[in-house]
């Protein structure tokens, strides 16, 4: 893959642990990345508060993507679990996580996904849950497949699960992707490589953990998420 000189967001100091808006290797950034300087937003109640979306919304099987249809999905059954922490390492409690992913063959149940791999009638690929008092979450699903896309010649996305998290405030909102250890596709994937700090890239890769596996049932992966910002206010009473 080509190496680019550091492409800044309109000349500001760069956080190499986050992707830039403009990353030319990822073609879709070219017409969607803002070019004018970002405006510095002082910290106020408008962003140290944030939505408590999801509470009271979650169904019993929402975190088990293998039990949402009449039969069981094909693929390698996995457990994905971990903790959600704030910038001080404190647990983020009672907070919504939403996930979505391709099926084991690398196909999304989405009308725009034209990859000629089979759909699985027993897999929708969407789940959600709330973190518990220690910030823990847990999903049961199947390992997603890699799939091709049209970004560059012979481009393939490494296997990944999309995660959407709210955390304690508007500031802490995060959408990211969780990858699997040792994926041979990392080197040619511009979305993964858009995070230029190699240590930060490691934070997007789940850890295989034999302790999490369930005997004769499912493999286990651990994935902790650290959100930006700090809990301004204890959340215990809410």
């Amino acid at each position: 893959m080509r190496q680019h000189p550091s492409v800044g967001d309109a000349g500001r100091r760069e956080d190499m642990g986050q992707p830039p808006y403009l990353y030319p290797d990822y073609k879709s950034t070219e017409l969607r990345a803002p070019a004018k300087p970002l405006i510095i937003l002082p910290k106020t109640l408008s962003d140290t508060t944030g939505p408590a979306y999801g509470r009271g919304l979650i169904g019993k099987l929402d975190n088990d993507l293998t039990r949402q249809y009449a039969g069981e999905p094909l693929g390698e059954r996995i457990i994905v679990t971990g903790r959600v922490l704030d910038g001080d390492g404190r647990p983020v409690r009672n907070s919504l996580i939403e996930i979505w992913q391709a099926n084991a063959a690398g196909r999304y149940t989405h009308h725009n996904d034209q990859h000629p791999a089979p759909l699985d009638p027993n897999f929708g690929g969407a789940g959600r849950c709330l973190t518990d008092d220690e910030g823990r979450y847990r999903f049961v699903t199947v390992k997603p497949g890699a799939y091709p896309w049209k970004n560059h010649d012979n481009a393939w996305r490494p296997a990944h699960i999309h995660l959407s998290l709210f955390g304690p405030s508007f500031r802490s909102r995060l959408i990211t992707q969780m990858y699997f250890p040792g994926d041979p596709l990392f080197g040619q994937d511009p979305i993964f490589q858009s995070v230029r700090d190699p240590e930060a890239r490691q934070r997007m890769i789940s850890i295989f953990d034999l302790e999490i596996t369930e005997l004769e049932w499912a493999l286990g992966y651990r994935f902790d998420v650290v959100l930006q910002g700090r809990n301004a206010t204890p959340m215990e009473n809410h």
Partner: peptide
Amino acid sequence: PGTTPSQTIGPFFHDA
């Protein structure tokens, strides 16, 4: 701990 990097929402988020 270091912050988890952001990644694109991609094109397939609607059902979730």
